[in-house]
């Protein structure tokens, strides 16, 4: 990764033009050509530095459901429970964290009422209580990393 890649990552996390030639417009801002920008994004995707080049949606504004949930999983059962939880297509991310509540996952559904069903299904499958922690307010949505 060189200075151009860093510039692309630092500047294109926040926004990308919606115009006929968006790569050309964005490239101009970055002081590179359209072809270079397209090639670099392609490479960054291939290298796995970027997981996607596209939109992140506000799930709730699309009418969907979204929540963060946690489980307290006995260490011995961890892998098995992780497999059970990850098998749900509605589970978007799942992280092991250092805490008594040691498994944290995001549930995203097309319909809000499906959240409670998924939570109950996970409880039934794992035999554990799910701590459901829906968002009540959001103070920042930037999530921009400088590289």
């Amino acid at each position: 990764m060189d200075a151009i890649d860093r510039k692309i990552i630092n500047n294109l996390q926040g926004g990308f033009p919606i115009s006929e030639r968006p790569y050309a417009d964005a490239a101009k801002q970055l002081g590179i050509t359209e072809n270079v920008l397209i090639d670099r994004i392609t490479q960054l995707l291939e290298q796995g530095m970027l997981s996607r080049f596209g939109p992140m949606y506000h799930a709730e504004r699309l009418g969907g459901g979204l929540t963060l949930a946690a489980l307290c999983v006995p260490e011995a059962d961890f892998e098995e429970v992780a497999a059970q939880v990850n098998a749900f297509p509605e589970v978007a991310h799942n992280y092991a964290r250092d805490h008594e509540l040691n498994m944290w996952f995001v549930v995203a559904t097309e319909l809000p009422e499906r959240i409670d069903e998924v939570i109950s299904e996970i409880e039934a499958q794992t035999g554990l209580s799910v701590y459901n922690m829906p968002k009540q307010a959001e103070y920042y949505i930037g999530l921009q990393l400088k590289v």
Binding site: Q13, G48, S51, R52, H58, R61, L145
Partner: peptide, 16 residues
């Protein structure tokens, strides 16, 4: 309004 962001979605771990 429904698109939170449009652009690069980074893989944190890969970026160090």
């Amino acid at each position: 309004g429904v698109i939170k962001r449009l652009g690069v979605v980074v893989c944190h771990r890969k970026l160090g």
